[in-house]
Design a protein around this nucleic acid. Structure first.
Lengths: 205, 205
DNA sequence: TAATTGTTTTACATTAATGTCGGACACAAA
DNA sequence: TTTGTGTCCGACATTAATGTAAAACAATTA
């Protein structure tokens, strides 16, 4: 009775957490309702009671995940940093979140490729507006002001590449450089510092 | 006797081509034997005749795909370019291949994450040795010589990021920048030029 | 032509996963 | 106590995908 109240973790959020972890690892097609139920610690039919179909559950998880990703750049709103400072802040925010949940990156990358229409819907429905566009606008004005050099879109892609790939490419990186999980994590912490330095000089006019 | 003839121009390679295209789009779990058979223009059971099980077919496709990826850096062997020249050559080779088959990147990225052991096996079994290590060695000596600045591993990851993400992140890029397929392709052609320029200055001491 | 080999198809068995339905159970309000 | 509500489970029903065995077919070669 009280157990239910205290553990603010009611079944529904338990399920969402479980589903997220399974979907991140296996993708939509690879995920099994049974496994999600197991992870959530409930019966499979109870799972269906909350989310009638797998697709439905997936949509919910996807939207949440996207919101998480978007949060990584939340700090950029209303900020009056310069563009370079914004980039630094972006990197900081990004790496902080990503170090805690490295699987999210590859998942989002896949979703953007697999059902772009869905992602487009989500992008539109999120009032906040795409965080990337904020960055792009900033970069564009910086280039005009002569603070930065290069084609704005290319600069943006370079920045995103370096952030996203660092985590989405985890398997590749570890395999190629023969790194343990700890070594990888350490390398990423180092990379956060490295990138902030790098960006400062790389786009200097 | 000669029935088999040179070059399996026949069903078997037809199957491999079909399987590759389906696996690239849907992944292992999402792919259906029926669909592969359809694409190959044969019956589903004939497919089983050639490759008894889906897993087996997948392995074959995966190895071939990896070989393709590795080929992108083939030119670096035995070359006596400087490290920067090697990077340029790498970018050239990479973009050339990737522009022709953009889906390969996200596929490989996923495979490295999903079954790293398999990828490790492939890496080892390929006598050529990991192409990335050739790059890394080159970068390391360049840094020692004072031709380049920065931690070698970070430089390598930056380079790979920029190549791989450009194509693996296609969905994300198109969605965020509102690009049609043509516009995306054009942007990538532009990016190839941009990157070669960029790399030259970005790592200068 | 008959035998041999290799290929494809038909028809089926098996397995696995999803989704649904009726009830069981706990708790709360009347 | 009864009635109602929300939650969860067991037992199906359904569907879909995989894999296999045996027959049909085609092409080649003795």
């Amino acid at each position: 009775m009280l157990s239910k109240e205290i553990g603010n973790t009611d079944t529904e959020t338990q399920i969402k957490i479980a589903a997220k972890s399974v979907f991140l690892k296996k993708g939509l097609a690879g995920a099994r309702m049974q496994e999600i139920a197991d992870v959530a610690g409930i019966g499979r039919t109870a799972l269906h009671y909350y989310f009638r179909r797998k697709e439905q559950l997936f949509q919910v998880v996807l939207k949440d995940a996207f919101r998480d990703l978007a949060k990584r750049t939340e700090m950029l709103h209303n900020s009056d940093y310069s563009s370079l400072e914004k980039m630094e802040a972006y990197v900081d925010g990004y790496f902080e979140k990503a170090l805690a949940e490295p699987e999210l990156d590859i998942f989002m990358l896949n979703e953007f490729n697999n059902n772009p229409e869905v992602m487009k819907d989500i992008l539109i429905s999120e009032a906040s507006g795409s965080p990337f566009n904020i960055l792009l606008k900033g970069i564009e004005t910086s280039v005009k002001n002569g603070e930065m050099k290069g084609a704005p879109k290319q600069i943006l892609i370079t920045l995103i590449s370096m952030c996203v790939f660092s985590f989405a490419g985890r398997g590749m990186i570890q395999n190629v450089l023969f790194l343990t999980d700890e070594q990888y994590m350490d390398l990423m912490k180092e990379r956060k510092i490295y990138m902030k330095d790098f960006l400062k000089i790389a786009f200097k006019p």
